[in-house]
Amino acid sequence: NLEVKASKQNFVRMLHPDDRKPAATLLQRHLNGRSRFEIEYRIQHKSGEYLWFLGSGQAAWDAKGKPLRMVGSIQKIQRRKIAEIAINRYAEDLQRSNEDLEQFAYVASHDLKAPLRGIGNLAQWIEENMAGKMDPETDSYMQLLKGRISRLESLLAGLLQYSRAGVGEIQAQSVDLNQLIGNISDLLCTEQQGFVVNFELPKIFVQQSMITQVLQNLIGNSIKHHLGGSGQINIGYERSATEHVISVADDGPGIDPAMSDRVFKMFQTLKPRDEVEGSGMGLAIVKKLIERCNGEVWIDREQQQGCCIKFSLPIDESMAEQGNSVLNTAIQ
């Protein structure tokens, strides 16, 4: 009473054309090399529609290694496979959209630099030609124009930096966080600006360019938004079984809880740009870099005064073991 006679020819004929060769190749590999036979393929239903199945089988060989017979089973996986295909397609579309957005950000920020530079030059030439001839009101307008040009340059630089964040990263390496923080402090002139950076940190395996950019942005933010002539910045470190957790805390005015969800978005600033100059890209870049390394970044609300931003990075066990091996060898 079978609708289709059981035969190898009929089975192959019912397979989707794109699945025939992979199935035949896997079957031959199983018969010759006794490798596992399990494959997903499409079989044509009597309605003409192709449905997804999971096929598995096991051959039996004689004493000379010649295949005698094969038993197996097929399981319908249509719903799971359709959902899987839809998820994969969505992930591909999302990745494509992100790539297009980053490319747009790069092109926009890069191509707008030249005309903006031209506008800045024109403003400077006008100011030079009108030196001593502008009344106070006109002079204030000129300073406002130059300030707006400088701000737009900063925004474009931040946008370009955001589009490049996390691109072309190299493998994790051993990084001395104490030395790194010292270099960043020198670069930002923290001492000259009246800030003391406190830290006592270990060496960890991490992408150096990424962790440098993250810590530089966070320390720079603490200085920029402190609003005082001096202050304390504390860099902390904790380690769990699976991740590093690093914190950057200051004794400034802190972040309004209402802004907690916004500060990590692009072009968001805590105060109007007329009060505190900035592109609003610093924390957005931090978030992008950390998440690209499968980490997280958040504001620690347990600190009573100032602002404390923490971020976590997964521990690379293979690199950690390699580091321990190198350390043990050095000690011996």
Rank of each mutant, 00 (worst) to 15 (best):
T269V: 08
G55E: 09
E296G: 02
L201T: 03
C307H: 05
V167Q: 13
V107T: 13
L101A: 13
S222W: 02
F195E: 01
P67N: 02
L54K: 10
G33T: 08
A23G: 01
V245K: 14
Q28D: 10
P136S: 12
E49T: 13
V107C: 11
N121W: 11
E102Y: 12
Q322N: 07
R42S: 06
K64N: 05
D261L: 10
K64F: 05
Y162R: 03
I77T: 15
K265H: 12
I255R: 05
T190E: 09
E277Y: 07
F205Y: 11
S185D: 01
S73H: 14
Q322I: 07
F199I: 00
Q44F: 08
R34N: 14
R20S: 03
R20W: 04
S7Y: 03
Y162L: 10
E84R: 00
I149R: 07
I204E: 04
E127A: 15
P115G: 08
P115H: 08
T138I: 11
N234V: 12
L122S: 09
V167A: 12
M319G: 03
C308A: 07
Y41V: 04
L68V: 14
V297D: 05
D261V: 02
S150I: 07
N221G: 07
G282T: 03
R29E: 15
F267N: 07
I255H: 06
D251Q: 01
G282R: 03
S7W: 06
Q332M: 08
V214F: 10
D111P: 00
Q207H: 12
R96N: 08
G194C: 10
L68M: 15
D186L: 11
P257M: 09
L313T: 04
S260R: 06
K224S: 05
Q28H: 11
E191G: 01
M130L: 14
I246V: 13
G55A: 11
G132Q: 00
I331R: 09
G278E: 01
H16N: 06
A6S: 15
S97L: 14
H16E: 01
R80E: 09
S56D: 11
L160Y: 09
A172E: 04
D186P: 01
M259V: 00
